[in-house]
Design a protein around this nucleic acid. Structure first.
Length: 439
RNA sequence: GGUGAGAUGGCUGAGUGGUUGAAGGCGCUCGCUUGGAGUGCGAGUGUGGGAGUAAUCCCACCGAGGGUUCGAAUCCCUCUCUCACCGCCA
């Protein structure tokens, strides 16, 4: 959430950002409640001071005098209870409103309504040429018997799938490759220097296997309870994560880190669970959109000053991954209407899917300033001893989507799929995915 | 799942109803001491909110939430976590 002081001092900016993000939050009402809140709090504090004062005297008094004092303080107590009730009601509305105010956005973020207003910043590579009709990934994969959606729907329902055989091996190869890149200081330094971000650290990302269940209140504090898409575990006070971010972002909850130890960088791997309610009928075929998929995720904790550049570095590394896989993609800057409520800046990578004849999102990168850490008390101490909230960056390393891009961009006339060179070493040097009996 | 013990400031550790926001020790900061490091001596040393130009003052916080009481770190209830043992288990 935002700092109420910040909202108070930047009313116009906050109102504009909220509107640009297409959110409807009554900021004026919030400010009114804030004013009320402080007045009530003051009144309550004064009453409590009075109660404390009398109570201290009662300790020394005795007999009738004591009895009278106890009687008089009970009037104060009544008033306190009344004020507490009032303040409690007010706080409920105040907190709901404050929680709903989205983060402000970077001035460079394009103002727009939906994904149509996103801006393509660059393209890498070119669309592969085929002397045949390229298939969609599910067609290819079902024929190669490396993907089974039919059996999954029988066993688990719609939006589930089995990965089989070489597709499983390809998935693990891809994640292994991502972990190798993000833990390699030489690569990080190279990408960093190419982007002229030499003031940033070249520290590697620490591998992490985080929990896939998260306390509701923690998930809420980092603004990741998304009613329609969050799976709840009814018998516990837990939700399933829709991304490793949900348990990685709170990793430094209730801590005060030292500035000299920043950034703290992590790459985590987990299964992500999404209900995908409200997306009925959308992307029903194949493995574009499912209730469950595996993802390696980047999470970086930085100072306020370096958060923005950290995001650029992360995007650079995402591009490096795609380039190493030789996948044609474009880099997109997300507009205000399409970005998340916690985002200050967002970039996506969209890979070309020849079978679908479309660019589809494979990576996303969110810079959220201190919007998430305010709720979980994650601080750092500056060189001057000042306590400040950490800034968070969250981004995709690889999800299931790049697998789709590999299948579609690397498909061959005979229905086999060429394996990108950098992944072969993780697959015993194998060059093609073929139907099992063809090998 | 069962039983038992516990959770106090940066750390350690006292505190079972009345100036206890919290003894003592360690650490840290400043001053003196020293040629200098150390020792020694003295003072200070939590966070958040609010009022005030400021000095300063007020409120809240002893795992979290609620309750009893004029008054709670201390008593009661619920929850969370840690440790030990038993049971079960990848």
């Amino acid at each position: 959430m935002l700092d109420i002081k910040f909202i108070r001092e930047n009313v116009d900016l906050v109102k504009r950002s909220t509107k640009n993000k297409g959110k409807d939050v009554n900021i004026d009402r919030l400010l009114l409640l804030d004013d009320e809140r402080r007045k009530l709090q003051k009144e309550l504090d004064d009453m409590r001071a009075e109660q404390n004062r009398v109570s201290a005297e009662i300790a020394k008094a005795s007999g009738n005098k004591k009895r009278d004092m106890i009687e008089s303080v009970s009037l104060v107590k009544d008033k306190i209870r009344e004020l507490e009730g009032k303040l409690g009601d007010l706080m409920r509305e105040y907190n709901t409103l404050l929680y709903a105010v989205p983060n402000v956005t970077d001035p460079s973020m394009p103002v727009g309504k939906d994904e149509n207003d996103n801006v393509v910043l660059s393209e890498w590579g070119s669309k592969p040429e085929f002397d045949f009709n390229p298939k969609e990934h599910w067609e290819l994969a079902e024929e190669l018997d490396i993907l089974d959606t039919k059996k999954a729907s029988e066993v688990s329902g719609a939006r589930f799938w089995y990965l089989k055989g070489d597709l499983v091996r390809l998935q693990f190869a891809m994640h292994q490759f991502a972990f190798d890149v993000f833990t390699n200081t030489d690569i990080i330094r190279k990408v960093r220097d190419n982007l002229k971000l030499s003031h940033l650290s070249d520290k590697p990302f620490i591998p992490m296997l985080p929990p896939v269940m998260v306390r509701r209140e923690v998930q809420k504090a980092i603004h990741r309870v998304q009613g329609d898409t969050t799976y709840r575990i009814e018998m516990e006070d837990l939700n399933l994560v829709a991304s490793a971010e949900h348990t990685m972002a709170p990793y430094h909850m209730n801590e005060v880190l030292e500035e000299k130890d920043l950034p703290k960088r992590y790459i985590g791997y987990s299964t992500a669970f999404r209900r995908e309610a409200g997306t009925y009928g959308k992307d029903m075929k194949g493995m574009i959109r499912g209730h469950q998929f595996d993802k390696s995720e980047i999470e970086s904790f930085t100072t306020a000053e370096t958060g923005s550049d950290e995001q650029k570095l992360i995007v650079g590394l995402q591009e490096y991954l795609m380039q190493q896989l030789g996948l044609h993609y474009r880099l997109v800057q997300i507009c205000t209407g399409d970005t998340g409520s916690p985002d200050y800046q967002q970039f996506d990578i969209e890979a070309w899917l020849p079978g679908q004849n479309a660019y589809r999102e494979t990576h996303t990168s969110d810079y959220m300033t201190d919007y998430q850490t305010r709720g979980i008390n994650a601080f750092y101490k500056t060189m001057y001893g000042e306590k400040k909230l950490l800034h968070t960056n969250d981004a995709t390393a690889f999800s299931g989507r790049p697998l789709i891009a590999i299948l579609e961009q690397y498909q061959q006339k005979d229905g086999s799929v060429k394996i990108p060179e950098v992944l072969r070493k993780y697959m015993n040097g194998q060059e093609f995915i073929k139907k099992e009996f063809d090998r």
